[in-house]
Write a protein that binds this DNA or RNA. Sequence first.
DNA 1: AAAACCACCAACCGCTGGACA
DNA 2: TTGTCCAGCGGTTGGTGGTTT
Length: 233
Amino acid sequence: MGRAPCCDKFNVKRGRWSPEEDAKLKEYIDKYGTGGNWIALPHKAGLKRCGKSCRLRWLNYLRPNIKHGEFSEEEDGIICALYASIRSKWSIIAAQLPGRTDNDIKNYWNTKLKKKLIGTLNISRPHEQKMVQPTLPLQSLSLSSVCHSLSSLMQMNSSTWYSNCNSNHHLNDAKSSPTALDFFSFPPSLANVGPNTRLSATENPPLFQTHDGLNSMNFLEFGSESELQLLRA
DNA sequence: AAAACCACCAACCGCTGGACA
DNA sequence: TTGTCCAGCGGTTGGTGGTTT
């Protein structure tokens, strides 16, 4: 027995939203709120749209305080660090970037940031580079600093990385300031994710968990094995 | 000038898990 | 306990506009 569709696909409009539809949806939600029922909302608002579509349009575009446009260096850094730690948990990453939506961040990562980071890593991996323990304060977290940390860490073997992760448990101590490395292993901000967050910080496995049970930055994936090869090259 | 290619991003699709009867 | 409904989520698709050939 299949599941009933959320709406009649033949009687709902699909594709891009017109300004009129946007206005109708916004006006309705401004007046009455979502009522916690997106399925019924389009009918009440006089829209020939699927409830899911309305919800997405509201969350990703019409909702107040949505930030559009360029991402800052700091935002880049946060995204990179969180991606390195928790992978594609876009909703959690979005929760750390006020005004940004998960869809926005996902698109940004897939189309720009990933390439930007790969490019930077290729440049910033001189063989003579020493292994360093980054000690960057949270405020200075930027793409360049994250890349520096990543490139340094990628020189490590898995056991070194593993011991580094374990040695960073001090971050549970609120008195110590978080470092970029802390973000790769366990972003402290994850402890404060919202009530709607499905994955709690404690549910997140250690990053880069590999089949041999060790954590290795060598297993950081940027979407595909070919990209990984590029990083290893 | 126009065809081909590419990058971006809005929107859709289908799965998951919580809530509830 | 089981089945259903629905919100939320991440992955994917396809339209659009810009760039290159």
